[in-house]
Write a protein that binds this DNA or RNA. Structure first.
Lengths: 480, 480
DNA sequence: GGGTATTTGTCCGTATGTATG
DNA sequence: TCATACATACGGACAAATACC
């Protein structure tokens, strides 16, 4: 509270010092300035208000003589503590009424409180390497010093991009030079940015259901969107061709929300589709590739791309922590050129300090160690989920079990998706209906299916919740 | 280097363990695996590749017997140090050639190196409160612990928004409740986001010249843009009305790049314009309001707005450091409702830790102290600039001197803008032509004018550079 | 922990416009 | 008409307290 914005009128009949004095008196009486609080120094206030120091001196002097404030030489002016000083005025009341009205209109649809939430975001509690992170944060802030607070490279810190390029090559088979990488604060930002690079008017092929945020990102960028059919191998290439789309958004390593892994053959078909047309692009969102529980690893599409037409995207928000807002995008050379030609208009969206921390995290192998640890944690939960869900017997069919941190359960006993979600909700368990993620009603999606994310839950919670679900969803039992 | 992605083909005639063995041999010979480096444990590698442990054991065993790696019991496998092992193979060479080709295509137009750069971004060297920041960072990381790594509120941390609301009211006269505030990573992101909230198809009135990034942000969002005339008081309201725009982007506290401060009367006219139409909005970018050197402070437009039609924007990137990527936006209640109805699809773009740091920075009055300090620093530079520029005599006219950290110089001796910039460039001084910021050639802008940002420069640099400019720009002297 | 630079209230000289005698 | 006093506003100088390194 050291800056004040006092409406002063030098043409008024009241002298300026009195206007200041009055304003402060009102603030003190309203209680906005609390007893013991320090006022700005006379000099500071003077500069702030654009008046002379003695004017403020005069005002302060009067307040002192009226007992509102006291002057401690060489320290400052402080608001006095006097009983019976507070008369919350009319103005204050009006303000508060207005605020309350606003608050009511903005009352965020109070989130229901569930005992167990099979949420799809979030990470395992305790899964974040706090201590290491703190240490690296300290180092990053110390090493950077001056550097860290100059504007950074609009594409991201060179060091981080180099580390990323190395990691992506080793772990995901992505072939790129650091200069192709663009770092940004979260997938949504990068997708919006990508939209501006690709240019509006594109026709985007997306699976149905899919990752909703991406869908909206593209819509807001002015793309037309075609829902493309998918089978157990992912997006159907014939459907994509038929849709007339010139861009495809896929998640080959783990489709969201269906959870299938796209086999190599389909990947090659997709690349062939892109190669058949001019300026066709594939956006490969590799968001969940870190967590795979069986089968051989399939390298990223991008690594097989000989036509410079795959845009690879990855993020640390899911693998490290949702609050670490760092994602990245590997652009084909021609798209990166296009971005560069803009002349670095858009500044990078991640602070240099955070980028530096991540760089250190990557460079010293911490990230891979972290992933190994988390893989083990999630594998346990994943296996537990499968074991427990088996108890549902033949009323349910589980899928999406090869990777990621969520599973799909299809109910085969006639219970609708809506009912399943509602029944669970009543029992204090939040599950997510598959239809929440559909982008088109024309392309049919699997019926009566719910999505269960298990990353955030403890093992006992999982066990207990799934057992409850078994009871709740078993129609026969409920009829009895 | 603890994760490998080895292409394995179980249907191949070569056994899997040999494929692994071959791959690793090649990596070692290529030098990608360096002597002394640790290989992943057999168990880890097996899980990673989706093969059995014994397969990996077999592969490792063969490598040991061939002398590529050695086995240290209870520790791991390590790459051996053998002379003459490196035969950068054909593949490696091809890779490198490809990379070099890419690198050439992406060679970022090498920035010329200037001795003095009157850049418009950046802050005073040494102006960032490193120590305090480090301290707060430590506290933020410690206090948050578990909290900090769960997904945060999509609009920004409640604590930060509360602190911001308080500050904005006191310092800028902005009337809002914390729920109206949206925090994001940089102005560009917020403007893109705002575009999606307002909906495309709007007609945006902008001054000419103006802040280019905003121009592109709006263009990419699908707005039509109308260049609106401006005079010494800022955007002309009649021109705005005539343009048919339904949204206006203005910088009342310090227009960029012209540097004028919009007087109260014009502000009221602008609000009246907005009130005259349905769904008209004013975007008030208050980016530079913190640095004002004379005259009385003018409260933000937003504070006078009775029709819920002003969108207020501010940023810490200019006042604190460009690398602190935090901006904020105060939305009218009805727009915030619209955003909420989307259901928090877009995650917040600033890490919770960074938000927490800023919250602490704001709450304890550090920010205001910091601003006071910086104001003093910039005031010195500003006054020095004016003093030195006076030496240019009547060949130049200085403007934009009331606020901000840049000045405009118009040359009156017939030297064109282009010439002025070029001559300065030859002398190792980077100055910026005003026309770089124009968005329309129809609306004429001030001729032969250059923009000089002085935030980053030391006082001696300023003195020296301006003296050089005097010589360079004085045509008579050059003719002799 | 100790020394220096900055901040702070206070005092004082000055300028200007207005009211008074 | 002029001299004087007063209120208001401006900016410099000083010593003490504080913050920072």
């Amino acid at each position: 509270m050291s800056t004040f914005l006092i409406p002063l009128d030098s043409r008024s009949r009241d002298p300026v010092y009195q206007q200041i004095c009055e304003y402060l008196k009102v603030q003190i009486r309203k209680g906005r300035l609390k007893p013991g609080e320090k006022l700005p120094s006379a000099r500071g206030m003077a500069q702030n208000l654009g008046v002379s120091r003695s004017t403020v001196d005069l005002a302060y002097g009067q307040l002192v003589s009226e007992g509102y404030i006291e002057s401690l030489p060489c320290k400052g002016y402080y608001v006095c503590e006097i009983d019976g000083m507070y008369f919350p005025g009319e103005a204050r009341k009006a303000d508060e009424q207005e605020d309350t009205a606003k608050r009511e209109r903005l009352a965020a649809g109070e989130k229901e409180d569930y005992e167990t939430d099979f949420a799809l975001d979030g990470i395992a509690p305790g899964g974040f390497p706090h201590n290491l992170w703190r240490k690296l944060a300290r180092r990053a802030l110390a090493e950077g010093e001056d550097q860290l607070y100059k504007p950074g490279d609009p594409c991201g810190e060179p060091g981080l991009r180099e580390a990323l390029a190395g990691y992506l090559y080793q772990a995901r088979g992505v072939r790129c030079i650091p200069e192709q990488i663009l770092v940004g604060a979260g997938n949504d930002y990068l997708l919006l940015l990508l939209g501006t690079i690709l240019g509006s008017g594109r026709k985007m092929g997306m699976e149905n259901p899919t990752y909703l945020s991406a869908y909206y990102d593209f819509r807001y960028t002015g793309f037309r969107i075609e829902a493309v059919g998918q089978d157990s191998q992912g997006m159907k290439t014939e459907d994509l061709e038929a849709s007339g789309a010139d861009t495809a958004y896929v998640m080959p390593s783990h489709q969201f929300p269906m959870g299938m892994v796209m086999p190599l053959k389909r990947r090659m078909e997709l690349l062939a589709w892109a190669a058949r047309g001019e300026e066709r692009y594939i956006i490969e969102d590799d968001y969940d590739s870190e967590f795979r529980y069986k089968g051989k690893p399939v390298p990223a599409l991008q690594g097989f791309d000989g036509n410079d037409c795959v845009i690879y995207m990855g993020t640390f928000s899911k693998s490290l922590a949702p609050s670490v807002r760092v994602s990245y995008m590997v652009l084909p050379v021609r798209l990166m050129q296009r971005y560069q030609n803009r002349g670095g208009l858009f500044a990078v969206t991640v602070s240099r300090a955070d980028q530096k921390i991540l760089e250190l995290f990557l460079k010293e192998g911490n990230y891979e160690r972290h992933l190994n640890r988390m893989r083990a944690v999630y594998k346990n939960k994943h296996d537990l989920m499968l074991r427990e869900l088996k108890e549902l017997g033949d009323i349910a069919e589980v899928s999406g079990e090869n990777a990621g941190v969520h599973l799909l359960v299809r109910l085969k006993n006639g219970l609708s998706e809506q009912e399943a979600v509602q029944r669970a909700g009543k029992a204090g368990i939040r599950v997510y209906g598959l239809s929440e993620y559909q982008i088109s009603r024309k392309k049919k999606i699997q019926e009566s299916t719910v999505v269960l994310g298990y990353a955030c839950l403890r093992e006992e919670e999982i066990r207990e919740a799934v057992r409850k679900l078994k009871k709740i969803w078993d129609i026969r039992e409920n009829y009895e």
